[in-house]
Computed example of a mutant assay.
Amino acid sequence: MSNALAWGMLLVAGVLDVLWALAMKQAEGYTRLGWSLVSLLLLAAFVWLLGRSLSVLPVGTAYAVWTGIGAVGTVLAGAWLFGESLGAVRLGGIALVLAGIVMLKLAPA
């Protein structure tokens, strides 16, 4: 697998992580069967993609980038879909996470 494909799979895994978190919220503690099944499918998909990307990418970098995508994406989705706050401190935290992701991506392996 190429390095570019591994990064692409990692990006998709991060997006699926965000979707998984949203499905978990909708599943309401696994009390809603449909959303519970969706969340489990998303979980399986992002774990598989993450695992595949780790065959090429350094584990520390890939895991940090994946969790950063998931964290930032989930905060933004929560604000957009559920009206969660996006104050200055939260926006600053998002900026720091994004800066860390960029630094990890650009750093030599």
Rank of each mutant, 00 (worst) to 15 (best):
A71K: 02
V72R: 05
S39G: 10
A107Q: 06
A99C: 12
L104W: 01
A79V: 00
M9E: 12
L49D: 04
V15I: 13
T61R: 04
Y63C: 01
V12F: 03
M9V: 00
A77W: 09
L40M: 15
L5A: 11
Q26E: 14
L54F: 04
G8S: 13
E28V: 10
S39M: 15
S36P: 15
T31E: 14
V38H: 10
A88H: 08
G14I: 04
L42S: 09
R32N: 01
S36C: 14
L98H: 03
G78D: 05
V72T: 12
K25V: 11
L96Q: 11
A79N: 00
A21H: 10
G92M: 13
A79F: 01
L19W: 03
L49W: 04
L50E: 00
L96E: 12
L19C: 11
V75E: 08
T74K: 04
V18D: 03
W35K: 12
V65L: 01
L5Q: 15
G100I: 14
A71W: 01
L86Q: 06
Y30A: 12
T61P: 09
I101E: 05
P108R: 10
I101G: 01
L86R: 12
R32S: 02
G51R: 10
S53A: 15
V72Q: 01
L43E: 08
